[in-house]
Structure formats: structure tokens, C-alpha cells
Design a protein around this nucleic acid. Structure first.
Lengths: 210, 210
DNA sequence: AGTTGGTTTAACCGGATGGTCAAAGATAAA
DNA sequence: TTTATCTTTGACCATCCGGTTAAACCAACT
């Protein structure tokens, strides 16, 4: 039945997601995924012909999931500063719920750059920047952010929320040793990151107004 | 002869480094490493008994290489701001020469957290922070950086230089599409990052002086 | 030349792994 | 009940891969 079929296919997909995220494409075993889903290994190949295709399905879903989180920021009708605050609150909360996602994506990007190339090719980055420039034209000028420095700013913003998760393994040890709590750090980071970035871009305001 | 022996062992190590960095522990094949070094596969096991040990040797060397780059900053006798500038100049230059290192380290940390745990256990992070606090006590107070926010600041600093390399695969595509140059971006980033961070921490100076 | 000790190789081993296949089970239509 | 179609399984296969072994090679010393 279609009901059962969907159930099985979904269970496979979910199991594959867990195993792939934990072990990566190379480290994951089809047998592990089958065991995890409580089914026969042959059934994996019945629904997804090869390991490669199964992985592709998982990766694409996860990549879209993580990138789609960037979009809502643009829809908001708010000042640039408020958007930055909104972004960090949402984005770090999302990553708290999916803490292994960044490492998974970054690892795969490194392992197989061609895949992300194909995926990103549809995605129009120029349009995103144009939108940003239209929405916040005055603010960008006031903050002295040009077409040249915009990538610098954007990547810095992303770095600050993604890095702690990508380097989670190191951070947890360091925090443990210095008697601090990683979760508290993440919770605080939502506000800290926003303040940090806003101060950084306000710091080079042109003196024309204030 | 010892001369020849060293040559072989070094050639193995170098080949292993290249292959492991490109493919990761799981993706790398002993046969590939042997081919790359122009020797028989059995010879790998003669010098490094197992794949695990060979990888360990490579990983430890690379980890030390990347972390040792953080130390010289402390030795400098300079203001905090100058140290930040110095750090980004040096660190980004280093990563430009070893662009795949961050992804390699981060990936392995994710794959096998126990290893980095063992490695970092010797390394005393508290001492590093104490040193920092002693060297820049007044500046930290002026910038309102407390024992609680210091990790926030430090991780943000690291994130800003490491992230572009960890996410290199994405960035290159995006830059390519928007007609900008990734290398130019990295070159500019040495100064931009420093300015960005300095403005961020100066922005919450206590008003006692200025 | 013969012996010794370290180095290098070809050939091989056993288990893991991605993938296939034919048959059994289940389900709904006739 | 029979038939047809889709789902699920156990058994199996070919290949890959890390690792071993025994013999060849080679340099130094006697």
C-alpha cells in the first residue's frame, strides 16, 4: 500500500539521514542504515538504487533545510540591525536543534565540491545581494558597506554562528576544561553575536548623520 | 641505510598527508598512498603498522601545525589591537598556503572527537586565558570584555579567519557566480577582519576615557 | 665469498561492503 | 479463489581493502 510504502521509504530516509550525518558518506554503511531502519539491506536498493543516490537525497534535503533558513531574513520589514538580531536568534536556535548539520555539510562540500556546485548553480546569489542592497541602500551607505565589502560582512556574519557548531568537538573540550558550559555559551551567543556584528559595522559609519 | 630509510619514511608521510587531507580518513585508501609515494603497499605497514597509526601521525602533525600558529601572538609585546591585526595577517597567510587544513581538522574532529580530546587535554587553555588577561588587563576592562564574554570574542575571532577556508567549496562557487575573486577576498580579509573585530570590541568601551 | 640485518616486493588472505536475484509475502482487483 | 502487482527477504556475488607473509634484494661487515 502507498501508506506502508511511504512509511518504509520515510523510515529509510530518516535512518539514512541519521547515519550519514554521524558517519559521513564514506564512513556510513548501507548495513548500518538498514539495521537502523529495521529492514533488509536489499530494500534500501529497492527504494534508492545506490548508496550514492540515497546520500544525494539526504544531502540535498539537508542543504536546502540549512539554506532556507537564510531566506526569511529578507522578507522581514525591519532595519538592518534588527535583521541581524533576528537572524542570529533564529539561526543559532535552529543549529542548536541540528548541531551536526554544519559539520556534515562542510565535510561533504570538501569531499565532493562538484555536488554543491550543481546545487548552488540554481541559487542566484547576485539577486540576493541586489535585494539586500535595495532594501537597505541607505543603511549600507551609512555603514560604509560597499559592493566590495559586502561579502566580507556577510561571510563574517555566517562564520560567527556556524563556526561554533562546526568546531563543536574542540569547543566542548575547551569549555569543559575551563569549567564553562557550552550550552550557556550558545544561548548567550544569540545576543552577543548580533551586538558584535552591529558594533563592527556601526564602527565605520560615515559621519554625515548621527 | 638510515639516509634512504628516512627518505622513504618521509615520502610515505608526505604522500599520506596529501591523500588524507584530500580524502579524509575514511575516504583514503592505503593503495592510493602507496601509489602516490611510488612504493609497495606492504611498505606502508612496515613503517606505520596500521592505517590508523599512519593517520594519527599525520593528524597530530597537522593539528600541532595549525595550533602552533596561535602561540606567537602571545609572545608579541603589543597592544591588543595590534595583536589582532598581527594575528589575522599571519593566520590568513598561513591558511592561504594550507587551504585544506581547516576542513581536514574539523572533519576529523567530527568523525572522532576522542582523538582531539586526548590531544587537547595536555594543552592548558586556562593558562592561555590567564596570560591574555594579565597581558591586557586594562584593555579588556576598557573594552568591557569579562571572563564570561572572552570565549565569545575569541571564538568569533577564530571563526572569521577559519570559516572562509572551511566553507571554501561554497565560497568559490558564490564568488565565481558574482564575478568576484576569492583570492582577492582573502587578501582583503587580512585587514578587514582585524578592523571588523576591533570595531566590534571598541564599540562597547566603557566611557571612562576617550 | 659468505653471513647478517635491515628494506622492499609480489602474492596472498579474510572479512567487509555495495549491490543483485529469485523466491516468498502481502494486497487488491477479477 | 485466482491472478497480477508491488513489497520484502535471505542468500549470494564480485570486488575492494587493510593487513600478512615469505622470499628477494641490498648494503655492510667478516
Amino acid at each position: 500500500m502507498t501508506e506502508v510504502e511511504k512509511q518504509t521509504e520515510d523510515r529509510i530516509f530518516e535512518s539514512a539521514t541519521e547515519v550519514f550525518i554521524e558517519k559521513g558518506m564514506d564512513g556510513a554503511r548501507m548495513q548500518d542504515i538498514a539495521n537502523h531502519a529495521g529492514i533488509n539491506k536489499a530494500l534500501l536498493h529497492y527504494y534508492y538504487r545506490t548508496k550514492e543516490r540515497l546520500f544525494e537525497a539526504v544531502f540535498e534535503k539537508m542543504a536546502k533545510l540549512i539554506f532556507s533558513r537564510f531566506a526569511p531574513v529578507l522578507d522581514e520589514n525591519a532595519s538592518l540591525e534588527d535583521k541581524i538580531r533576528f537572524f542570529y536568534r533564529e539561526h543559532i536556535s535552529f543549529l542548536q536543534k541540528n548541531p551536526r548539520l554544519p559539520a556534515f555539510i562542510l565535510n561533504e562540500i570538501n569531499r565532493n565540491p562538484a555536488r554543491i556546485r550543481k546545487l548552488l548553480w540554481k541559487f542566484n546569489i547576485n539577486e540576493l545581494w541586489n535585494t539586500l542592497e535595495k532594501q537597505h541602500h541607505d543603511e549600507l551607505i551609512r555603514y560604509n558597506i560597499t559592493r566590495e565589502t559586502l561579502p566580507q560582512v556577510m561571510t563574517s556574519i555566517a562564520a560567527i554562528s556556524v563556526f561554533p557548531f562546526a568546531a563543536r568537538g574542540i569547543m566542548e573540550v575547551l569549555f569543559e576544561k575551563s569549567g564553562q558550559d557550552f550550552n550557556k555559551y550558545l544561548e548567550d551567543r544569540k545576543e552577543f553575536a548580533a551586538g558584535f556584528v552591529i558594533r563592527a559595522i556601526k564602527g565605520c559609519e560615515t559621519g554625515t548623520n548621527v
